[in-house]
Design a protein around this nucleic acid. Structure first.
Length: 426
RNA sequence: GUCCCCAUCGUCUAGCCUGGCCUAGGACAUCAGAUUUUCAUUCUGAUGACACCGGUUCGAAUCCGGUUGGGGACGCCA
């Protein structure tokens, strides 16, 4: 029975790298129909905060990662760690130094780790110092309580970041001293920023929260993270969670650090958005607008139409909010450059006046009627359609790009369209 | 500094374990063309990589060694 764990420390938000670790553990557990345990590493009582824990839990749920047993908290197990440490002192494997308990390192030994991702890796104990088990303040040191708890939880496979590879021999020594068979280890390469340096804010965000805020879909983030260091082989890239659970095999993991590519993630997010039904997008869009403090009393019917217009154009939900502001407020953003180019000249103003005059007269304000009016005007005036379209678009949306002009006009409605065109022509 | 991990297009990768099917495939990005009323979408095409040096072999991206480069760890942080 496979038992894996994810062990976050609630001293900060859920890092994108930790999210990936959680994801791979989850996939491993689900693939083998085993269990994923959650352990809260809150030994540092001053830095650990409830709000961080709550957010980490929220983010995991948002990503679709669930776990199987009540999470355990290390802060509640200090007495256990102390008992184990005391035991090792009694057995002569450790000694005390003041209040601290320290593990004696046997020199001249080779510790071999058969890593699931890297293969055999060996370390010499000459390169490792005596290890603190319990610190002077009574709190346990990481490597020690980690081993005690993994044994307690009967963890069979430890999948974690490469930064722990060099902790592994130390931990194996603890298992040995405690008389416990160590689990299998799998160390996955770390995610780096685009420039090869540690992932940081300037690479587009380090916490899951930031991606959530920007309107990335969890399924897109999961799919993207999945591809960082893992591949099912072949050309397959768009992989849903269910399929990922089926296909996942830790042996297909590469031992190579990967750079986080925000551009590709953004592209993939756009793909996931485009694949959704308008009705599925509706509540997500509403929530996004709400979170960004926008007016949300627009009826479903209208919002759905706007979504239809922009579905293939938005890469993130937040981008939708930015691109479609002119539907929901008069205080929409205006591209200065485009306004200067298409609205400033007398000629443009003339065209806008002419076009709006015709729009007043057409019977139904449908995109086809609008298009007809536009084309006949262009033909009569010997203009290219674009010469009418460009100024009109900027006049009614403030933007040089967007959905098809006639469709967006129809959805905006005659009164707003005319009002804005006349204002721009004045 | 010591120890450890790693090395295919700009990026993510397929291929590597089980050498020949690889004149190295895909995706993102970039560029060009087509479609389009603009932008976008879509379609077509192009640019673009086995880090280097040796070795093993009839044959190496694939195996071995070294060099270089990148990353990680050396905390009474986790």
């Amino acid at each position: 029975m496979v038992r894996v764990r994810f062990a976050p420390s609630p001293t900060g938000y859920l890092h994108i790298g930790s999210a990936r670790t959680a994801l791979f553990n989850w996939l491993y557990a689900r693939h083998y129909k085993g269990s994923l345990l959650l352990r809260i590493e809150d030994t540092d009582k001053t830095r650990s905060e409830k709000k961080y824990l709550d957010e980490i839990i929220d983010d995991l749920k948002w990503l679709g990662i669930d776990w199987d047993e009540e999470p355990i908290h290390q802060s509640a197990r200090f007495d256990v760690y102390r008992r184990m440490a005391e035991d090792l002192v009694k057995k002569g494997k450790a000694y005390r130094e003041g209040e601290a308990y320290i593990f004696k390192l046997e020199k001249g030994r080779t510790i071999e780790v058969d890593d699931m991702i890297h293969g055999k890796v060996s370390f010499n104990t000459d390169d490792i110092k005596d290890q603190v088990m319990i610190k002077s303040d009574g709190s346990p040191a990481y490597n020690f309580c980690c081993v005690v708890d993994d044994a307690y939880l009967k963890v069979t496979h430890i999948i974690r970041g490469d930064d722990h590879l060099s902790n592994t021999p130390k931990q194996i020594l603890f298992y040995e001293a405690l008389g416990i068979t160590p689990p299998r280890f799998g160390h996955m390469p770390l995610i780096m920023g685009a420039d090869g340096a540690k992932l940081s804010k300037r690479h587009g965000g380090v916490s899951v929260e930031e991606y959530k805020k920007e309107g990335f879909l969890p399924e897109a983030l999961v799919n993207y993270l999945l591809l960082l260091g893992w591949s099912p082989g072949g050309d397959k890239e768009m992989i849903g969670v269910d399929e990922a659970v089926k296909l996942f095999d830790i042996n297909n993991m590469k031992g190579v650090q990967a750079k986080f590519d925000l551009v590709k993630l953004t592209w993939m997010n756009g793909e996931y958005i485009a694949a959704k039904k308008d009705e599925e997008l509706l509540p997500l869009i509403r929530k996004q607008m709400e979170d960004e403090g926008k007016k949300t009393d627009t009826p479903d019917e209208i919002l759905l139409k706007v979504i239809g217009l922009y579905k293939v154009r938005m890469k993130t939900l937040s981008e939708f909010v930015r691109m479609t502001d002119y539907f929901f407020t008069e205080d929409y953003s205006v591209e200065e450059k485009a306004a200067g180019k298409y609205l400033a000249g007398a000629e443009s103003k003339n065209i806008l006046r002419e076009f709006s005059g015709r729009l007043k007269e057409i019977k139904d304000f449908s995109h086809s009627s609008i298009e007809e009016a536009c084309r006949s005007l262009a033909e009569e005036k010997k203009l290219k359609a674009g010469q009418v379209i460009h100024p009109t678009r900027v006049a009614i949306s403030g933007k040089s790009t967007g959905a098809g002009l006639f469709e967006m006009m129809e959805v905006l409605g005659r009164s707003k369209v005319l009002e804005r065109m006349q204002k721009a022509a004045a």
